[in-house]
Simulated assay, not measured.
Amino acid sequence: MSTTPQPTGQCNIYLNLEQEPEVTEEGLSIALGYLYSSVTIRAITSQNARSVLAAGCLLGGMDELCNYAYEICRQSITVENISTWLQFVDAVPAPSDGTSTPIEQRQMPPQTAIFGPFAQRLREDVFDFLVVTLPQTLNVGGLSTPISPHPDGQPSDAGRDTLLQIFALVPFDMFKAAVESPTFQIVGSDQARFKFAKDAIDLRKRGIARGQGAEETVVLAFGGHNGGSTVHVTRKLRKRPLWKVNA
């Protein structure tokens, strides 16, 4: 963003929005309108909130607007749009406390850097949605969850099946953290969490993990975990095949 002074005392403001794909014309229009009247805050909806937040962070000095847009974003995370939010958080680097399996660290890409601290807050909101809200919403393992026939003849939990389809799309670092979290009690036992992770990894092999040159696995530890997680997800690079050349 740059400004050019004019002879009349006015300034032209140039915004290079090509480098900020999160900022749309609608979001920028609402943010600029907020400079003149706080009434424009009423134009923020679940559809444009993230763009307004990005525009507000870009322009700066709009704490009320940004906090309001962020809250709309947080409340708008649903089963229907979770795939879009997963694409967003995939660009937000995961924090590391040094206690989990090392995960490849990346620099924050430009499309999420614009959000500043809101990027990490949104990432945490998506994580909480996956671990707490989503299993409850889908009533995973609940008595009222619709049951349908499974190809192998076993009853299928429709809520669990939907949760599996969603977790098959979750970026690895968040998938690992979610499955290993004791808060993620889909049925209330470590064995159920382990079985869920195993089924999800089978789906991920045909989707998000395909072609990455890495293999995801899950193990269940027994005893001596002192209240920690007994379910552990790891990812390791596949060994390249060795070719023997006869001289």
Rank of each mutant, 00 (worst) to 15 (best):
S2W: 04
P5M: 03
T8D: 15
C11E: 11
I13R: 06
Y14I: 08
L15M: 12
L15I: 13
N16S: 09
Q19F: 04
V23W: 01
E25P: 00
G27F: 08
L32Y: 01
G33N: 11
L35A: 12
Y36Q: 04
V39M: 08
V39E: 14
A43K: 14
N48Y: 09
V52G: 05
V52N: 04
A54L: 04
A54F: 04
A55H: 08
G56Q: 06
G56C: 08
L58P: 05
L59A: 06
L59W: 06
G60N: 08
E64G: 00
N67V: 02
N67P: 00
A69V: 06
Y70R: 03
E71W: 01
I72H: 05
R74D: 06
R74E: 12
R74V: 13
Q75L: 14
S76K: 09
I82T: 05
S83A: 12
T84Y: 02
T84P: 00
W85Y: 15
L86I: 09
L86D: 06
F88V: 13
F88C: 07
A91H: 14
P93W: 11
A94W: 14
S96G: 00
D97S: 13
G98E: 10
P102K: 08
I103E: 12
I103L: 10
E104V: 11
Q105L: 11
R106P: 00
Q107P: 00
Q107Y: 04
Q107G: 13
M108V: 13
P110D: 12
Q111E: 15
A113R: 15
I114P: 01
F115A: 04
P117Q: 07
P117V: 08
F118T: 03
A119Q: 05
A119K: 05
R123Y: 14
R123N: 03
V132S: 07
T137G: 00
G141F: 07
G141R: 07
T145V: 15
I147D: 00
P149K: 06
H150D: 15
H150K: 07
G153Q: 08
G153H: 09
Q154L: 11
P155N: 08
P155K: 09
P155I: 07
S156P: 00
D161C: 00
D161H: 07
D161F: 02
L163S: 01
L163Q: 02
F167R: 04
L169I: 01
L169S: 12
P171S: 03
P171V: 04
P171C: 03
F175A: 10
S181N: 14
S181R: 04
P182D: 09
V187I: 12
G188C: 08
G188E: 10
D190W: 15
Q191C: 01
A192T: 02
R193A: 14
F194V: 02
K198T: 11
D199C: 07
R204S: 06
K205E: 12
K205S: 10
I208H: 03
R210A: 14
Q212Y: 01
A214V: 12
E215H: 10
E216W: 14
E216T: 10
L220Y: 06
L220G: 03
G228D: 11
V233Y: 02
V233K: 01
V233N: 02
T234E: 08
T234Q: 09
R240W: 01
R240A: 13
P241D: 07
P241K: 14
L242H: 09
L242W: 06
K244H: 10
K244W: 09
N246D: 08
A247S: 11
